[in-house]
Design a protein around this nucleic acid. Sequence first.
DNA 1: TCAAGATTGATGCAGGTGCATCGAGTGGGG
DNA 2: CCCCACTCGATGCACCTGCATCAATCTTGA
Lengths: 165, 165
Amino acid sequence: MKRKPSTEATAAWIRLMRVQSRVLDCVEQDLKKAGFPPLAWYDALLELSRAPSGELRPVELERQMLIPQYSTSRLIDRLVDEGLASRRECKIDKRGQFVEITEAGRELQKRMWSAYSAAIEKYVGSKLSDADAVKLSGLLDRLGCSCGEMKLPPAANVNESTPPR
Amino acid sequence: MKRKPSTEATAAWIRLMRVQSRVLDCVEQDLKKAGFPPLAWYDALLELSRAPSGELRPVELERQMLIPQYSTSRLIDRLVDEGLASRRECKIDKRGQFVEITEAGRELQKRMWSAYSAAIEKYVGSKLSDADAVKLSGLLDRLGCSCGEMKLPPAANVNESTPPR
DNA sequence: TCAAGATTGATGCAGGTGCATCGAGTGGGG
DNA sequence: CCCCACTCGATGCACCTGCATCAATCTTGA
């Protein structure tokens, strides 16, 4: 008799939870040991640096990063405190504001990418052939119902220092 | 020229992070909406209920669940506060103790499994064929270097109410 | 034009987590 | 036998998160 979640599905669920938390932990540790702030800071800086003029509305950032509103608000606080971003008022909508990445922010993002990319290679790239990485992505995407687009860099002359998204 | 982490590996990393957090979030929300405590409580109760006489040393629990020591300590505090487990002193090692699941704890674990298994089916099982679930598990395992054994239920007459691990 | 509702962003509070450290207890070598 | 190193578990602190809610502003529709 078939059980509702098959043992196969249940096993996959457990792996997904365990492996992700383990791998994320390893990467975060490497970053921290190199003296860098948490990954969330990198993600935010990357989004900002990619924005047309280096600035975004908090609500945009929130949608890009898929984190709750209050979380965005406080993350911006910390970035601003550290001089990595600055707030600008929004003339056309006085409720809102713009958050603009600073030069220091851009620089930190670049420096983090070298440690970050090394960690990705160490904990993911080196464990999987490119073909397997593609298979894994495909299987994961099937779970990520309505998970958003997730465009990669425009595939231009990316050669080094190419940040992920 | 090859970049250090290939785009394929980077894409897989991003999916892994995003999909896991999304799926975990959905499952936790379903549990919470059904009035249940967090998944970590379920994991702990399951480990305890599986132990030979329904009790474990905190240090064992810690190793099974792969969470830090202080986290285990406080999780046990909460289970005890809610009457789901109780602490017993350990005669043979007076530093240590035993944590024993109570009847209420066993019952909660069983009730949670029905909501939990439904959520797994909803967010994982229904999205993937069994064969694909196996492929996904296999790929994830390759990342989980030294991630521990992760034995599934002894494959006895499991028919319903079979908890995962 | 104006009131009702939606949207933007901040924040008080409760609770969870990581880090460092502590005290108690064990066990092995001199 | 005793001391030192180690293990076990708890806890103070800082920080982070989720939740609810707030004030300010914008938008819509009668």
